[in-house]
Nucleic acid binder design. Structure first.
Lengths: 152, 152
DNA sequence: TATTGTTATACTCTATAACTATA
DNA sequence: TATAGTTATAGAGTATAACAATA
């Protein structure tokens, strides 16, 4: 493992600094998420259903990285809010397909636009090279997380 | 500066990619946070107390971006766990200073090491330019968030 | 017997409103 | 009257364990 080099004049990005930065990002995202009346968990699951189509509850739970009972509850709350609906899986009597509703699509689109705008506002405060680095970093991190999720 | 074009056709695709990436990071951090038996909220507040010293409950709440009652409860839980203690503020009979305990310091140090290691493992999966971009991006984003918090 | 989903139970985290005590 | 903190209440989000129904 290559240690973070603290060289003379070099960028001193200690692990702690990075962790603090990530925590700050998490707080920011959580905060800006609450503002719109849709929780992170809900908006994330809703987005997945919108992008990928109807899914089994188990797959949804695994994709979101939460437990099955957790997803049962989340889907119940979202169903109560009219964002998704449960549909019987005709190919497997045990299964349930979760499907986004038209209202859910609409809420998600608005929500996504708000959050994208908030992120853009934040990124706009950076210098041009930093903006470029941010795009590169976020996409690379997402890719690494995805590949990790595919093969654990 | 290339603006995110939000034409009549819908939201800009790369903005959405970035949002999805951020959400994925948030999930990852939250997940790796739970693994160690200390919640994000607790570890974040504990870290602040460790780095910045004893603070008024109100200041802690504002710094963490949560409500005062929320912080009262969080401090109560952490106090029950022996991580912090409440100390009377002699300069203001209404106030309470929250102070990290030795046990809290120890837990935080271990926790921080674990999380830094997890982040390093993730970053290690990226290419060298991406690693560089990630350090630059995280520090820049943290700086932007800090400056925003100072002047809202 | 294994898988899918739900129920039961118990935390943490979060907020707003109402209250107490001090300034 | 204003500020600091707590209590009361409510709800989201999370987990594990136990259960029912289906494969």
């Amino acid at each position: 493992m290559d240690m973070p080099v603290t060289g003379p004049g070099g960028p001193d990005a200690s692990s702690e600094d990075l962790i603090i930065a990530v925590e700050q990002m998490v707080r920011y995202v959580r905060h800006s998420a609450r503002a719109g009346g849709l929780s992170i968990a809900a908006s994330s699951a809703l987005g997945r259903l919108g992008r990928e189509g109807p899914q089994r509850l188990t797959d949804l739970a695994r994709g979101e990285g939460v437990s099955q009972p957790n997803m049962t509850q989340l889907v119940t709350r979202m169903e109560r809010a009219g964002l998704v609906r449960r549909v019987a899986d005709r190919s497997d009597g045990r299964g349930v397909l979760v499907e986004i509703t038209a209202a859910g699509q609409e809420v998600f689109a608005r929500r996504r636009a708000e959050r994208a705008e908030a992120l853009q506002r934040l990124i706009a405060e950076l210098t041009e090279p930093e903006q470029q680095a941010t795009r590169t970093a976020l996409l690379a991190l997402a890719r690494a997380l995805r590949s990790r999720q595919d093969t654990p």
